[in-house]
Design a protein around this nucleic acid. Structure first.
Lengths: 146, 146
DNA sequence: ATTACTAAGTTAGCACGCTAAGATTGGGGC
DNA sequence: GCCCCAATCTTAGCGTGCTAACTTAGTAAT
């Protein structure tokens, strides 16, 4: 069927994102990207924006704008980093923590159910995905084109 | 490690897209999205924009704009569908066909190499991805939230 | 023939990704 | 003290997703 794995991957992720987006927007009025950002910040604890960008897998300007929006909605706070330098230390507010817990449960349950219905082994698919990701990120795009 | 498969999938796809984007931009001055659209049109033959949107996994307005841009660059043509109705039949120009061949080879080689280096089985990963995609698209988001 | 329905496409406006280039902060050398 | 460097963050501007609402072309019902 699929003559092209990378295309299917693209489509799968796009559909997953859109589906998550609809669910989260309906339930909490938050986009999937924003929830993802909150989850990452929660996972990292008090982190710099650079770290958040890295972990989200987006550019620094994207992370900067996103954290700005979330600070605006009262789900994040950003202080200057006490360790000095031109850094901002972002962390969850109480509202943000609440939101993270609720959304995380909602998404995990949904996604696990999808995997179960598809008959795919969660653990082996997760392992393979992790390997691909590691290989891609460590090989760090050396030469663009021969 | 990955407490969250859906996040890793998201990151993997995002990195793949960006990587493909850099390669294609450097080689042919075309974004990955545009190349993807060309490939789909080539695969479908003469198709309506709706079919292209469906196959790309994007909304109709997105496909409409994208085909408009590609017609503007001379890689696609769009005629009114001879079967009537408010349809446009899009297909590749000669330039478009050339571009598709070159890009397809470039991307396939790169991606296959990544998979090989990661030690993941291409066929089983492709099968699982296909299953997830099928399950997700056939279950068509019934109830947003209980 | 006129009215209404359906399918496909477009327009408008926003969300959020990117790159390139500028601003800020702290720590070197001279 | 002063200048420059490295790291981080921001600004500017664009590409391409999305939804909502509108337009257009053909079909069916009266």
């Amino acid at each position: 069927m699929s003559t092209d794995l990378s295309f299917d991957l693209h489509r799968l992720t796009a559909q997953l994102d859109r589906s998550a987006d609809r669910i989260l927007t309906a339930a909490y009025g938050l986009s999937y990207r924003r929830v993802r950002t909150l989850l990452i910040v929660g996972r990292l604890g008090a982190a710099t924006q650079r770290a958040v960008a890295e972990e989200l897998g987006v550019s620094e300007p994207s992370a900067s704008r996103m954290t700005g929006v979330l600070v605006g909605t009262g789900l994040l706070v950003a202080d200057p980093d006490p360790k000095g330098g031109n850094r901002r230390r972002v962390s969850l507010t109480v509202d943000g923590k609440e939101m993270v817990e609720q959304c995380q449960n909602l998404l995990e349950v949904r996604f696990a159910e999808l995997v179960r219905r598809s008959g795919v082994s969660y653990s082996s698919y997760a392992r393979d995905t992790g390997r691909l990701l590691d290989t891609l990120t460590t090989s760090a795009a050396p030469d663009p084109v021969p």
